[in-house]
Design a protein around this nucleic acid. Sequence first.
DNA 1: GCGGACTGCTTACCT
DNA 2: ACAGGTAAGCAGTCCGCG
Length: 893
Amino acid sequence: MAQRHLEEYSKVDDGFTNEKASASAQMRTRTKENTRHAFPLVAPENLPASYFVSATYNGRARKAVIKLYEPESCRIYFWYDNTGHQPYCLTNLSPYELERINRVVQHEGFDRFEIVEKFDALSNKNVRVTKILTTDPLAIGGRPSGCIRDIIPEDFPKVSDTPIEQEKIKVWESKIKYYESYIYDRNLLPGMIYRVRKGNLVPENLEEKEKTIKGQIREIYKNATAEELEFIDEWARLLEYPAPKFRRVALDIEVVAPVATRVPDPQEAAYQVICVSLCSSDGQNRVLLLRREGVREGAERLPPDVNVEYFDAEDKLIRVIFEALWDYPFVLTFNGDDFDLRYLAHRALNLGFKRSEIPIEVGKRTCLLSYGVHVDLYKFFFNRSIQIYAFNNRYRDVTLNDVGKALIQTEKLKLGKPFGELTYTELARYCFRDAEITFRLTDFEDELVMKLILVLARISSMPMDDVSRQGVSRWIRNFLHREHRRRNMLIPNTQDILAVKGKTATKAIIKGKKYKGAIVVDPTPGVHFNVAVMDFPSLYPSIMKVWNLGYESILCSHPECRTNLIPDTPHWVCTKKRALESLLVGSLRDLRVQWYKPKSRDKTLSDDLRSWYNITQGALKVILNASYGVFGADSFDLYCPPVAEATAAIGRHYITQILGKAKQFNIQVLYGDTDSLFLKNPSKQQIEELAHWTENELKMSLDVDKVYRFAAFSSRKKNYLGVLEDGTVDVKGLTGKKRHIPPFIKNAFGKMKQRLAAVKTPTDFQGAKKDINEIVRDCYMKLKRREWENMSELAFNVTLGDGLDSYKKTTPQHVRAARMLKDNGTELKAGDLISFVKITKEPHVKPVNLATKNEIDVDKYVDYLHSTFDQVLDALGLDFEEIIGLTKLERFM
DNA sequence: GCGGACTGCTTACCT
DNA sequence: ACAGGTAAGCAGTCCGCG
């Protein structure tokens, strides 16, 4: 914790000091303020089975601290390290050489040197390195200057007898947070169950369960190597242990704002907190209101199970909230990192609270809790991987309203008047609804979100608070780090991997990209009946597994491996030693495909168990989907572009081979993208032939993923519409489903989609075409007659990708509109949605709320209607201009 | 001085 | 702070044109 906070505080002074950051819970137990807590925070000598939910570093005690959640009492207990583990980093300088660097050996936090042997996967040999142990993680790194990791390359060239270049001096593992290092070295598993016995932290082994599971899993993985089995066992143990009930509270605050369009600055916290709502798993629904002059009670009703409490003084209200933060082991907010908790912490300071009275650890980007675990659901749902793979893109805007609407069918209350004019009960109702949505987002489907976070914590070896905030590349990095330490492997520095294996050899189609990616087959335009879609289940992870891909195996140093070439590239891959990534990604893939996916659909299992399997397979899917991409991302610690390049190249090779085979088998391929093939009316036998061939020759499975009753292609790639047997319509890439398109056009598109769903046979098409004609014509006429209900129906909704000032090269329309809004006094930032309409006069755009009906450039909208429908109409053999009644001659003129 | 061909920028999508 | 490939619309530039 101290390390993390120091790094954050060094950049921005937000009123807290480092002392505050390292002020620990342990210290709190000694302070007077805490005497009001009836329970001890430090774990007793013996603690029953409890979940490892978080970890931190206590600067006062100079120890790692594990937060244990005991599910019977529903409390968090702190367990302090008792093994004497110390912070350290590694270097290739010998102790003898290091002794000469005064600023190291005389460093305040320096303790001692040790010589250790590690396996260096980059050079493929064991190396002896020096371990520099310290008494404080900050001695190694995290301060702006004077850290050992920086001093070594700065000072050693000066004191060395022989001239030495800085690049040859290596320091390893100096950027790992101390509590993470602690977790790895002690082989602890966040999210798993531990006990405290005689003061020691010991893992809880559910031996019976493990035995049966292992038995069943071994049945399935008969072909796995011993090495693979070991990993599969390990993963299965992590994923099969049960989850607790999470005692938790959701919190939402309201602040008086002098300017309605401006959100109060949480740093300044200049205005009163007027309402706070709590909604909890134990049915404590509370609204705390601050009494203010001139505010009326109001006639509305709150839900009957909600308690309203009034306060005459703001500090008293805040104290009650802080008590809740000391009480609940899990606290949920929607954007609490940047607003609610941050505001409360600074507001409390402004009101004269002592720092030790504030249970919030304010960081640069986070607000963690002194006692429990804060999950900021905004950050969690904002995670693109979570959004797409765990929730199938069901919500599009990451707002409480949109996520609530999509996942729990509950929206925010709409306010009919300005905030300042609300009665107490109106304010209370509004605020409570927000807390309620926040809570229920973690409650639906048997606490799915909480369990998902728990499973991800287990896979990634990260505390729950970290895993809920960070992206998928951090999760992957952390479990790779864990496995390096477990196998006594040196964790390489990013630049070292790059220096040895950084070069790519293929040319990307897109300018500015590093290497060539996947193949997209040109679609055959038209409507096709009975289209079977075959695909490779998790193609890229399978490739990594089968081809032994990893930073250590690609371009390995063995001369005899050089002939083991990756198709389409000059790269080779190791034949002698299995790469860690290949093993890890491969075993996760197998576990998902062969165990969790089938179990999640197994009707013989209880609902609870099936749901757990479903959550687990979903978590695995999220991780597997990113496991290739991270190797091509320079932000990833084990960045290794040839690994990503090789994966994509093999994928291209496979698809190309199958295309050739399909031709040979006389199967018409209508379309294909990356790992899929769309086959026109194939016979059962043809499908089997193709699947068998792939299994035998490519050692990959190729399955029928779905069958379309019919599919419509234009000549555009990544653009089609397909109707499944059950009438579901898949729309891919068509403009009509894109988020930014005006609802007016989108609605017409939706009607067409519905009409197409009813088509069963080629003859049905006649009727459908006629109706679609009508739909398009109707939309066109309404536009021409300016018959829309509401201006917002015509609004384009485009995300502002960057801050307004960073558009230097061009001024896109949405930016132009956004600047008009800004001139009007609206604050805008990256990520905001800009709603604008097209108008006839210069500059042809206007924010929707500033525009009037007769300004609208109707013809521009007709153009949009045209291009949107064309994508489907040409497949159906229809013509937009004929539909709207222009003859060929008129068009010519 | 104007318009078409072109490139580049931006967003949203697909796998 | 996972990747590359594709579509679409618009902004801006260049070049030819008596």
